[in-house]
Design a protein around this nucleic acid. Structure first.
Length: 480
RNA sequence: CGGGGCGUGGCGCAGUCCGGCUAGCGCGCUUGCAUGGGGUGCAAGAGGUCGGAGGUUCAAAUCCUCUCGCCCCGACCA
């Protein structure tokens, strides 16, 4: 375990991220290229995220199930765009039990095909609809360039798959789950996101329409943090997912899928972290409070530990995720840096002076140095901690929102757009043509992120690239 | 696929050109003592078939041949 200083975000944002993930013990590199090991601290963070999502899925009527990891290769060939989109990324199992398999099996890169196959068997009548199933698991997409949490071959996620009797109901489901993702991102992860529709080139392979939530990282690059797809009847026709309607006519279902992955962990790191390390939002932080005792000799030690123990108990009893760092072999200063690197939202310091005054010193992770320190009386710590954590949660969201808004600009011209996307997002009229989109990508590396669902102008304008009539505005940005 | 670079304790490196005692250094790790309100100091330890195979030699981390792996740049792909 190395505890050297991180590079600053300004010096080298990418290197800051790579080292931070490893040093904070969120994750580590696995012996297989492209794969990562999620360490206990990182997995606890992910669990706190999945918990918030899973609760929301249940509230919106979904139930969990599990589908197999291995999928017959032939399944992928049933939907044309789907196979074209995924075949370069597939890992294929050709042997089992020492023998060559009759049909190769694909390690799932996503589960539309196998779930579609099962839905076709289960759905017979309009009375069986809607089917609202979610699956938690991992998937594998072959990747060369990897970055822990952001792009790895295997990653953890959930994928919801639903089938409906009408187009409208399926479209509503897609937007409902996009709202769930946005609500989670904003309120739990304190990440402001923009909901929008993907362009033809950016949408999911096989979808009629893809929508996503897009977040801005501190290097101003965009990160797609959750997606929701409307498939129309594409998969229903490929897998014959059919039902008899009330008039005894055979109909194809309308299906959707939606997913949010462990990439969200990367989003939390790159949205909130600073040069000292992680800054975790209290709602999802594995530890919300860490207590550091300070003493010089045995006399001080016993009175200080008495105080830390009682504060620890008060906080724990009130439902706070708290840790007492009573290690004797490292100094308090070392512990400050250690827990700051790991992003614990609140640090409580208790020394002889605090004991004497029946108080504790409280330091906020999101406000470094003396200005983030204040004093609570010992008796009120537990009562004050809940609102204090909420205040921090709000401050993180406000800071991230301000940062994002400062880096979104509306270009006055195409040249202006080229400048803007070097250090921000450009919000501009776009005619919708792939030609214009591709031109921007080739000349600036920026792609269209999404056509936002909200905040569209009432009147048409001119495409920032070609000058033709444009109905809607889109975000252009460099993306992960 | 083309060009360049690197493999030496857990991590980062020196030593290789010009072969020679027991292969060093920093960080980390273990133990002890002191220290303790912002990355503490001192001392004693543990830990290496020098990427692998073969060869030259009295003697190889060092020279020769083959081989494996990784990184960077370019090409290709999205």
């Amino acid at each position: 375990m190395t505890e050297d200083k991180l590079p600053t975000r300004k010096e080298n944002f990418s290197e800051w991220y790579n080292q931070l993930v490893v040093k904070s013990e969120l994750a580590d590199y696995a012996p297989v290229r492209g794969c990562m090991v999620v360490r206990p601290y990182g997995w606890t963070l992910w669990e706190n995220m999945t918990g918030g999502l899973d609760r929301r899925f249940k509230e919106t009527g979904h139930t969990n199930a599990a589908f197999p990891m291995l999928i017959p290769l032939s399944f992928f060939e049933k939907e044309k765009e789907h196979v074209e989109g995924f075949s370069p990324q597939l890992a294929v199992v050709t042997h089992g039990g020492g023998e060559k398999l009759e049909e190769p099996l694909v390690v799932r890169p996503t589960s539309e095909t196998i779930i579609g196959y099962m839905y076709a068997r289960w759905i017979k009548s309009y009375r069986d609809l809607p089917v609202l199933i979610n699956q938690w698991g991992s998937v594998l997409r072959w990747e060369i360039r990897t970055k822990l949490f952001i792009r790895t071959a295997e990653f953890y996620w959930q994928e919801g798959h639903t089938a409906h009797s009408t187009e409208q109901e399926a479209r509503e489901e897609t937007l409902r789950m996009l709202d769930v993702y946005a609500d989670f991102a904003i309120n739990d992860a304190a990440i402001p996101v923009i909901k929008g529709e993907k362009s033809e080139t950016e949408k999911f392979a096989g979808a009629v329409q893809s929508t996503s939530i897009e977040a801005m990282m501190q290097d101003t690059r965009a990160l797609q943090s959750g997606t929701s797809h409307f498939f129309g009847q594409n998969f229903a026709k490929a897998f014959e997912i059919q039902y008899l309607d009330p008039s005894n006519t055979l109909q194809y279902c309308w299906t959707t899928s939606w997913g949010l992955s462990s990439r969200m962990v990367g989003a939390v790191i790159m949205t909130h972290g600073d040069d000292q390390g992680l800054i975790l939002p209290p709602k999802i932080a594995p530890l919300q409070v860490v207590i550091v005792p300070i003493y010089k000799n045995d006399t001080e030690k016993s009175s200080v530990l008495e105080s830390t123990n009682s504060v620890f108990k008060d906080l724990k009893d009130s439902g706070i995720r708290v840790k007492l760092d009573d290690r004797e072999e490292v100094t308090p200063g070392f512990k400050y840096n250690y827990w700051e690197l790991r992003g614990v939202p609140v640090r409580i310091e208790i020394g002889p002076k605090d004991v004497e005054q029946q108080s504790v010193t409280v330091a906020r992770r999101d406000v470094p140095g003396k200005s983030g320190k204040s004093s609570f009386t010992k008796a009120e710590v537990a009562a004050k901690m809940h609102p204090f954590l909420l205040e921090i949660q709000d401050a993180l969201l406000a800071r991230a929102t301000a940062f994002r808004d400062e880096h979104i600009h509306e270009p006055a011209s195409y040249d202006d757009l080229k400048n803007i996307v070097q250090d921000g997002w450009a919000f501009a009229y776009w005619c919708g043509s792939t030609t214009c989109e591709t031109k921007v990508k080739e000349e600036t590396k920026a792609t269209t992120r999404c056509i936002p669902l909200e905040g569209q102008p009432k009147v048409a304008g001119k495409c920032v690239v070609c000058g033709n009539k444009a109905e809607k505005k889109v975000y252009f940005a460099r993306a992960y």
